[in-house]
Design a protein around this nucleic acid. Structure first.
Length: 312
DNA sequence: TACGCGTGGAA
DNA sequence: TTTCCAAGCGT
């Protein structure tokens, strides 16, 4: 008769499930061979410019939305030199449908900085990448690993979620370990020479299987050693309030304003207030002027007196 | 550190 | 219909 394992508490029992790095690498490499996703930014040989544009587009944005936008964008701006030379307005027009229009401004300035400072060669060095506008910790690591095959641990929200769940027993689908803790784990796990495939595999697993809501644990290659397999329950939602005007969140007004200026070359504040609010009352124009000024400081619009347009 | 920043399909 | 969410970044 087999003696029952003696455990002091439930947590210790879960700790036993933690997989070794070797096991994880073997399982994930096997899974990745048959389940990896192919994208324009993953075609070989890797083009760092395509990786850069794609990674900026992918910030907080789903793949299905980025794929067609990236094709349009690359047709319009085939090289980093084309992008650097372009008018800001054309970059914002090409950004249509992606949202977070400030990213287009950052990407444009990023391209200009790379042409000016690095002769148009996108850096492979993390510190140099981090100094560029719109390139944060994630994107710098993504470019180093995916474009140049550097052995750096990439931690996006997908990888953070996968590693959090695998190494710690989580009961809510919303829970995850702090980013710093996850990065330490990720750096320990990263196989030599695995900068590309390992990070992509973890990311694909998080996107396809270890999803935030309704994770497909039964299809997961890591389920036998995952601390959270079978534990995850839906998170209780808690919406937070956004600053609104006329019952519409401020950033929606920002989006509508940029979209309006994509269609028309130039408008007065009063015309825009009429189009957006159906009213050009003094309060509405004043509120719009304030909005436009902040957007101008973000670089997504250009205000000349009472006229508003996309920046040249 | 917490907040503001777009979009539109899915739940 | 409403709510939630998706390869983050800068301030």
């Amino acid at each position: 008769m087999r003696a029952k394992r003696v455990t002091t508490n439930a947590k210790d029992q879960r700790e036993d499930r933690k997989p070794s790095a070797a096991w994880l690498r073997q399982r994930l490499r096997w899974w990745y061979r048959t389940h990896r996703r192919m994208f324009r930014w993953r075609t070989e040989p890797r083009d760092p410019y395509i990786v850069l544009v794609a990674e900026v587009m992918l910030q907080q944005t789903q793949v299905w939305r980025v794929e067609p936008a990236l094709e349009r964008f690359l047709k319009r701006f085939p090289t980093i030199e084309h992008l650097a030379r372009a008018a800001r307005r054309d970059v914002l027009v090409a950004w249509q449908g992606l949202g977070y229009n400030r990213r287009a401004v950052y990407l444009h300035e990023c391209a200009r900085a790379i042409v000016a400072r690095f002769g148009g060669v996108i850096p492979a060095d993390l510190a140099q990448l981090r100094m560029l506008p719109g390139i944060g910790d994630y994107t710098a690591r993504a470019i180093a690993a995916f474009a140049y095959g550097k052995d750096v641990a990439v931690v996006d929200v997908n990888i953070q979620r996968v590693l959090s769940r695998v190494f710690y027993p989580l009961q809510s689908q919303a829970e995850q370990l702090p980013i710093g803790k996850v990065r330490r784990i990720a750096e320990q796990l990263l196989p030599r020479g695995g900068g590309r495939w390992w990070n992509e595999a973890l990311m694909d697993l998080g996107s396809l299987v270890c999803t935030k809501r309704s994770p497909r644990c039964s299809e997961c290659p890591l389920r036998r050693r995952c601390s959270s397999a079978g534990l995850l329950l839906p998170a209780e939602q808690q919406a937070k309030e956004e600053p609104c005007y006329r019952n519409v969140p401020r950033r929606l007004w920002r989006g509508r304003l940029v979209e309006l200026l994509r269609q028309r070359s130039s408008c007065t504040l009063a015309e825009i207030a009429e189009l957006l609010f159906g009213s050009a009352a003094a309060d509405d124009v004043a509120w719009l002027r304030n909005l436009a000024d902040q957007m101008a400081s973000d670089g997504v619009v250009c205000r000349d007196g009472e006229r508003l347009e996309l920046p040249p």
